[in-house]
Simulated scan of single mutants.
Amino acid sequence: MSSSEHRKPAPPSFATLVQSFFAEHLTQQRALSPQTVAAYRDAFVLFLDFAQAQLHKTPTTLSLADLTPALILDFLDHLERDRHNTVRSRNARLAALRSFLKFAARRDVTALQVVEQALGVPMKRFERPMFEFLTREEMLAVIGAPGADWMGQRDKLLLALLYNTGARVSEAIGVKVGDVVLAPAACVHLHGKGRKQRSVPLWRSTVKVIRAWLKFNPDLTPTSALLG
């Protein structure tokens, strides 16, 4: 047997890895949405443009060895400093690169050390903004905002139910007329995930809105959707 027959196949080129990553891995194997694939593509376009400017190499001549932690960190700093990206956007670009690197490591085992070093670039921590809340007066203003037509009254009831019960929108929409008890102790039976049920007391103001809604829709039966 000749020495050429013992020769190991050459590892895939960087261009081949990128093409396989998008054409096979993301779209076929992981079946990601077109929007996610587009976001990954945008991250790569930005990174390849930056790498070309820094290394003076075209994308077709790059190799995995060029994807050093220093280059990746410089790219991420460039996104924040020059493109004014938020930390969240920076981390999203990094996530795209990391996903590619993990894929490349499975296709080219000779680059495991290079990939391991590049994967050591951490996500940047940031403080999440605190969620604010509406005061009672502000919430009442929101509830009272819908108009007097059918859709406006339905939206008013939906907002009142959500505010009163703290229910998910899916729970509120699933309430049937028979789930509502208006007397003697007003409450609504909510059906949540996993067939979980709970009963929540209703305020007098909510009862008033429900009574007005039922009067507005006299054809509703106990099995009808309350907000139908």
Rank of each mutant, 00 (worst) to 15 (best):
K215D: 04
G192P: 09
S205L: 14
A183C: 05
H78E: 15
N164A: 07
V180R: 00
T68K: 14
F75W: 08
L26V: 14
R168A: 10
G174H: 01
G147Y: 12
R136W: 07
A95E: 06
L71F: 09
T58G: 08
Q52Y: 07
H25C: 05
T221M: 03
T206C: 14
K124L: 06
H25F: 15
V177W: 06
S63I: 02
R136C: 02
V175H: 09
D108N: 10
L73E: 07
T206V: 13
S99N: 10
G152N: 05
M123P: 02
V181M: 04
L101D: 10
L26W: 11
L79C: 15
L62G: 13
G174V: 10
F21V: 09
A105P: 06
S33N: 05
K176L: 04
T58I: 11
F126Q: 08
P122Y: 03
N85L: 12
L220H: 02
H25W: 14
D42I: 03
L55N: 00
S205H: 04
K124E: 08
L140Y: 08
L190H: 00
E80M: 14
P222G: 12
L76K: 09
S205G: 11
A141C: 00
A95Y: 03
R93E: 01
A43P: 12
Q19R: 14
G192T: 04
L182K: 13
L67V: 03
V180E: 01
T60E: 14
L94S: 03
Q35K: 09
V180N: 11
I210R: 06
K57W: 01
R7Q: 10
Q52F: 07
F21G: 08
A38Y: 09
W150A: 15
L226S: 03
W150Y: 13
E132N: 12
F47A: 03
W213Y: 09
Y163S: 12
T165S: 12
L134I: 10
Q29F: 00
D49L: 08
R81G: 12
R98I: 05
V169L: 15
R88T: 11
Q54K: 12
I72T: 05
Q54S: 15
L62P: 08
Q52R: 06
T86V: 00
P222W: 12
P201N: 09
G228M: 08
M139T: 06
K176I: 03
R154G: 14
P129I: 15
R106H: 03
A186Y: 13
R81F: 06
R107M: 08
K193V: 06
I143N: 11
A39I: 00
